[in-house]
Structures are given as C-alpha cells and as structure tokens.
C-alpha cells in the first residue's frame, strides 16, 4: 500500500509538473537535453535519481513497473528502486518485460521487443555525448546549436586509427532524426539498433546532471559510423550457457580460479523465460 506519509509516487505535485513539462519538451525535440531542476532523492546520485524522478512523474496507480540493472531484475539497484515505488506509489511490479507498462532500466534494453503503451525510462550518468571531448557546457551547448559534431567523428576515427575498428562498445552516440547527437546512456552498442523505430516511448533522466531527453515512438536514431567502417552491433561470440540463446547480449562470469568461465544472458527475464520453455544451454540443467 502507499505509505500515507508520502505524496503519490514520492515527489510533490509542483516538482512533478516541472518534470512533466520537461518531458513534453523533450518529446517535442527528440534527442535534445532539456534542463530540469533535479531534486534530492532518498538515494545517492549515481543510483538512478534521474530515472527515478522521470518514473515518478509518469507512474499512474494501475501501472506494472519493471526495474532492471544491467539486464537483471534481482540486483540491489533494481530491487531497491522497485521497492521504493511499491511503497510510495502502490504500483504493481513485475519481472516480465511483456507485462510491464513502465520499465526503468540501468544500461540495457530488454531483449523482448517493446510494444506500444510501454514506457522505457533510462538512468543516465553523463547525458552529454560531447562531454569527454569538450568539458565546457557553454561550448557543448553551442556545438549542439550549430550541429557541429565533427569532434565526435574525430573520436571515432581515432578509435579506428588506434585499434583498427571503432572500439567504443557502450554509450555509443546516435544521431536522432538527422539533428541532435545523443548519448543513449551506457547501454552496450549491441542494444543501439533497438533505439531506432521502437514502438515504446523512451525517456532519459540524468539526476546529477539535471537533464531529461526523449525518443518518441518510431523515431530514427542512427549510430554514427563511416562508410568504410559501418556500425556493427557486437556481443561475446558465444551462446548463453544456461538457455542456449544465440542472439542475446551476454555477461561473462568467472567460475573458478583456473580460467573457468561461463557466458549467460544479461537479461535475466529473457533467459528465465527461455529456460521455462525448455531451452537448455551448455551448463544449464533441463527443467
């Protein structure tokens, strides 16, 4: 039940109105980072305060909330945020991607395709894709204004010069609808193709950096690349050792001190769903 000491979904109404206005402007200008007056939340910066505020502004009582941390439903960050909204908003929770109406995520897009009516909320640490190339906010803002993204291509080119390929493996920049270059949060570049043309609403919240941005449904988000070095979504060249999935993003788990290791789906709901259907991987046990 909702804790009576708190307003619905924790935040006060004035704060939610401010966040909601920022979300709508973000939707209207896809990929542009809208400044907002981020609040102190009952968790430290870096633990998803931006995502939590966006989720709080979007939740309605009938929602079923799913929270994932690197694809997993059962890690500390995911469990505590899920419990936070159970307590302050009284919403239902689920681990099944298809059943969720709102999904807050840290650094993954679920393997199960999203649908209309779902909202995917990303926790974002550094929303500015140009920040590590140009530390001054005044300058990066000017670069977005002038569509001056040459520096980002130089960075990707330096990857090729040094490593023979684009080595950026996460937080891989995308260009949204041919206008703004956007940081998709530190999702693996394996997930980048799912950003584009997604039927769900995708909202990005950066609490410490006080920015909200958005991808409306069916919005084009193109991963930056070169004609002779086209973008590739990459993953570990293995199958999941538990469910045998060939095309899911994998975590590498060290199992002993003699070099033993296993690869498992990072998306725990996807992996569990496959195992329940009888799929078995190299190290899995038949159900």
């Amino acid at each position: 039940m909702t804790d009576q000491a708190y307003n619905f979904a924790y935040l006060d109404e004035q704060t939610k109105r401010m966040i909601r206005r920022a979300i709508l402007k973000g939707i209207a200008v896809p990929g542009y980072q809208v400044p907002f007056a981020s609040r102190e939340m009952p968790m430290p910066y870096g633990w998803g305060t931006g995502g939590v505020q966006v989720t709080a502004a979007c939740l309605v009582p009938g929602d079923r909330l799913k929270v994932i941390d690197q694809g997993a439903d059962d890690t500390t960050n995911a469990v505590s945020i899920r419990r936070f909204f159970q307590r302050t908003a009284g919403v239902g929770v689920t681990e099944a991607t298809a059943e969720a109406t709102v999904i807050q995520t840290r650094h993954r897009i679920p393997e199960t395709p999203l649908a209309e009516g779902q909202i995917l909320v990303y926790q974002v640490p550094i929303p500015e894709p140009l920040r590590f190339l140009e530390p001054r906010e005044t300058e990066t803002r000017k670069m977005h204004e002038l569509e001056e993204y040459g520096l980002m291509h130089v960075k990707l080119y330096e990857d090729i010069a040094r490593h023979g390929q684009i080595a950026t493996s996460y937080a891989y920049p995308v260009k949204v609808e041919g206008r703004y270059v956007m940081d998709p949060s530190p999702i693996p570049r394996f997930d980048n193709p799912k950003l584009s043309g997604n039927p769900a609403i995708q909202l990005f919240g950066a609490g410490r950096e006080q920015r909200i941005y958005a991808l409306p449904p069916w919005t084009e988000a193109v991963s930056l690349d070169f004609e002779d070095h086209p973008f590739h979504a990459t993953k570990a060249p293995h199958d999941c050792d538990l469910c045998g999935a060939k095309h899911s993003y994998l975590d590498e788990v060290i199992t002993d001190d003699t070099g033993g290791r296993m690869f498992v789906c990072s998306d725990t709901d996807f992996c569990a769903g496959r195992r329940a259907k009888g799929h078995v991987g190299r190290l899995g046990e038949a159900a």
Partner: peptide, 19 residues
C-alpha cells in the same frame, strides 16, 4: 485527488504528444 488525477491525465497528454 490531485496527485492521482494529474498523473492519469499527464500520461494521456504524454501519449498524445508522443504519438
């Protein structure tokens, strides 16, 4: 019931603006 009614209405406005 401001908090719940505004949440429900915002969700509709969000869907309207996003689609």
């Amino acid at each position: 019931e401001a908090s719940v009614q505004s949440a429900r209405a915002f969700r509709e406005i969000l869907e309207a603006m996003a689609r």
